Simulated scan of single mutants.
Amino acid sequence: MKIYTKTGDGGETGLWGGQRVAKDAARVQAYGTVDECNAAIGVARAMLGPAAHDLDALLGQIQNQLFVVGADLATPGEAASVPRVGDGEVAFLESTIDALETELAPLRQFILPGGSPGAAQLHLARTICRRAERWAVSLGRAEQLNPAVAVYLNRLSDCLFVLARAANARAGQADVPWHSPRHS
């Protein structure tokens, strides 16, 4: 099987089920941005040190879940053979957030994306996730969409924020505080 098919050379791509759409359609933007988030998480995993092996395992689970989210977004309608994201995946993210927050000092101010290389990359993944969520919300206004997709992406961005803080803690690096120009 060749990696190139030439079927997308005219600016269209195929969805699950065979429907052809423009490569800049909201559905393609949504699942493409989910893929971008997944790749950013992969870079973060490569940057995390040995002290963050537990975070690496969590991020691996999230990457697998993002494939389900992508398949869900790439499949309009009710195709039974395609996995769909649901309450179980959202609950996993919520329990991950709750568990990690017990280890972290409470936030008393806004923090800047940064710190250790792995944490900075997780912050980048968080912002990409937020963009994916915006695309999913936009798509959901125009077409039928599994409502759990937007909920999952919303919770994932929160989870990535907490994972970035945990990555800094594992690396012995403090979060980077935001200094308001009015209070400098």
Rank of each mutant, 00 (worst) to 15 (best):
D54M: 07
Y152S: 00
G32R: 05
G32D: 08
H123V: 04
D158A: 04
G172V: 08
A164D: 02
K23I: 04
Q109S: 12
A120Q: 14
G10T: 11
M47N: 00
V137D: 02
G70H: 03
V162E: 13
I3L: 12
D72Q: 00
L112Q: 11
I128S: 11
E36H: 00
L15R: 10
N146M: 02
R20G: 05
L112Y: 04
E89D: 14
I97D: 08
C37H: 00
D98L: 06
C37I: 00
V68L: 05
G88K: 08
A57T: 02
L112I: 15
G10W: 00
A164G: 15
Q63V: 07
D35G: 12
G10V: 09
R165W: 03
E133I: 01
H179G: 06
L156H: 09
R155Q: 12
A51N: 10
G49C: 05
Q19C: 02
V43K: 08
P181G: 08
G14Q: 11
A26D: 15
G32Q: 04
G11P: 12
T33H: 06
L66M: 10
E143T: 03
L107E: 12
P106C: 04
A80C: 02
Y4N: 08
N146S: 11
S81G: 15
L48S: 05
L93W: 13
P177H: 09
E36Y: 02
S180C: 01
L153S: 10
A22V: 05
L163M: 13
T96V: 06
R131N: 11
P147I: 00
L73G: 12
G77N: 07
A148Y: 09
F67N: 10
D9E: 11
L55P: 06
I97W: 09
G8D: 02
K6L: 03
R126E: 14
E101S: 04
R126K: 03
F110S: 01
E12G: 09
R141P: 07
S138H: 10
G11S: 04
A142W: 00
V137P: 00
G115E: 10
Q121C: 13
R170H: 11
G115P: 07
A44N: 04
Y4Q: 09
R126G: 12
D54K: 07
L104H: 03
A44F: 02
S157P: 14
A25S: 15
C37F: 03
A171Y: 14
V82P: 14
V28L: 06
A99W: 04
D56H: 06
G60I: 00
E12T: 15
G49S: 05
I41M: 14
Y152F: 13
R130S: 08
G8W: 05
F92G: 00
G86P: 15
L100W: 02
Y31K: 05
G10C: 03
V176F: 02
A79D: 15
V137S: 02
F92H: 09
L55N: 09
L139S: 09
G86F: 13
L145Q: 12
Y152Q: 05
M1D: 08
L48V: 03
F92W: 10
